[in-house]
Design a protein around this nucleic acid. Structure first.
Lengths: 243, 243
DNA sequence: ACCTGAACACCGTTCAAGT
DNA sequence: ACCTGAACACCGTTCAAGT
């Protein structure tokens, strides 16, 4: 059944992260680097200069090594990205339990949001279907929390995807706002350059929200708004589960 | 109040898209290209080869022109991306009205989903805070649909963000799955390489869902699942509005 | 087995011409 | 004003050495 012949073998970096670790005493010179060390270096770089500063060359430079040396640890840039993402995300830990399943799920969402807040550039990384250990551990943790809901397997998975997607979307909004300081045009400038009359004629409601300061303002991505969407989603899920 | 001194001037491509169009008879040679023409060419390229094939060189090649020629129409690659995204998205049109505001919002969500389905690579494009005309027209349309809800301005904007984010997250999931054919490892391979026992020990619920075929299977991103999340969100919003 | 050095194709961006 | 051609710094990736 599972003979998808095109499926590539697991990249070496990802396989290593799963702990099929390097056999202890193998021949040849000692390694100067390690996968966690490479990941930490990349994270420090991204923390300091953002995701767009990430490159094999810059990471290698920090490690005092040639770019090509990294290919002993990683198959490709994509492979590295998966490792860096997972390392920066970290394992789920210390997440409060909550009164009931929905409360527990809410705690999970806030904990994930906090991880993204620690490394805003995580929102800039291309996250494909998660196959890395920490990513799957987070999913596992959420699935466990949803077990008390009485939802079926399919619905539980759907609910998990809904909540997970919500947190990540929100993290992206926060990231956008952090970036808005540099480069991005601000709403006021846009309206001025387009012409207030024309702008108002074409998108009156948007214009009204922009001039009210509500549109994409810092408060529009504040904790309060995070809770708004979370509450709505959980209310919808509760209605389905408890009904 | 609005003196954010770091705000850059509006990129020329974006300004042009807003219809501050080229003044008719200006001096110099006639232009060989046009912004819509450039965007169309880029869209055709992305449709054929995906977002990662998009580059100034490849687009220029299709247009029979040198890479640098594009800089007469666009300030930067980022500027171009905004135009291409907005052009591929298109203006909102032909979206059913719906019985009530929630129904109307649902129709909006399905319409946006369909646009992403037409150009799956849209999910791969870095969409910053939307300032392009079609993007804002979509937002405007949704805000109009939410007017009957009785929610306040702030809540309406929050609800719009919630719905919009949901559709885009879903579109990304669909894109991931379309890509899964090539390159990405499949769940079965992962479990085999990691070792089924170790894998099951670490993430038992995930392992169970994977072996049940539910995890990230085609049906997990089917229309049925789209409706699941949409229904939950709308139920949550209805509860807040109608209560 | 690990790392270096040289090379390749490609990328976005700039600058000085040409017309 | 538009487009070309040459150049720049940078990118990921490969290959053949060296140790």
């Amino acid at each position: 059944m599972n003979d998808r012949s095109t499926s590539a073998p697991l990249p070496r970096g990802l396989r290593q992260t799963w702990g099929s670790g390097t056999a202890a005493g193998r021949p040849g010179p000692k390694a100067m680097l390690s996968l966690p060390g490479i990941a930490s270096s990349a994270i420090a770089l991204a923390d300091a200069e953002g995701a767009e500063a990430l490159s094999l060359g810059r990471i290698a430079e920090r490690l005092g090594v040639t770019t090509n040396a990294l290919y002993r640890y990683v198959d490709s840039r994509d492979d590295l990205d998966v490792i860096v993402h997972d390392h920066a995300l970290g394992a789920p830990a210390g997440i409060p339990e909550g009164e009931d399943w929905a409360d527990a799920a809410a705690a999970w969402c806030r904990a994930l949001r906090d991880r993204y807040a620690r490394h805003p550039w995580l929102s800039d990384m291309r996250v494909r279907i998660p196959f890395a250990p920490h990513s799957l551990a987070w999913l596992e943790d959420l699935l466990e929390r949803l077990e008390g809901s009485g939802l079926g397997d399919r619905e539980t998975l759907q609910a998990a995807g809904l909540l997970d997607g919500y947190v990540r979307t929100r993290a992206g909004a926060v990231r956008d706002l952090l970036r808005a300081d540099a480069g991005t045009p601000d709403p006021g400038l846009l309206i001025r350059e387009i012409g207030a009359e024309r702008f108002t004629a074409r998108v009156p409601r948007v214009a009204s929200l922009m001039s009210s300061g509500l549109y994409r303002s810092p408060q529009a991505v504040a904790d309060e708004d995070f809770e708004f969407g979370l509450d709505r989603i959980l209310a919808g899920l509760r209605q389905l589960a408890g009904g």
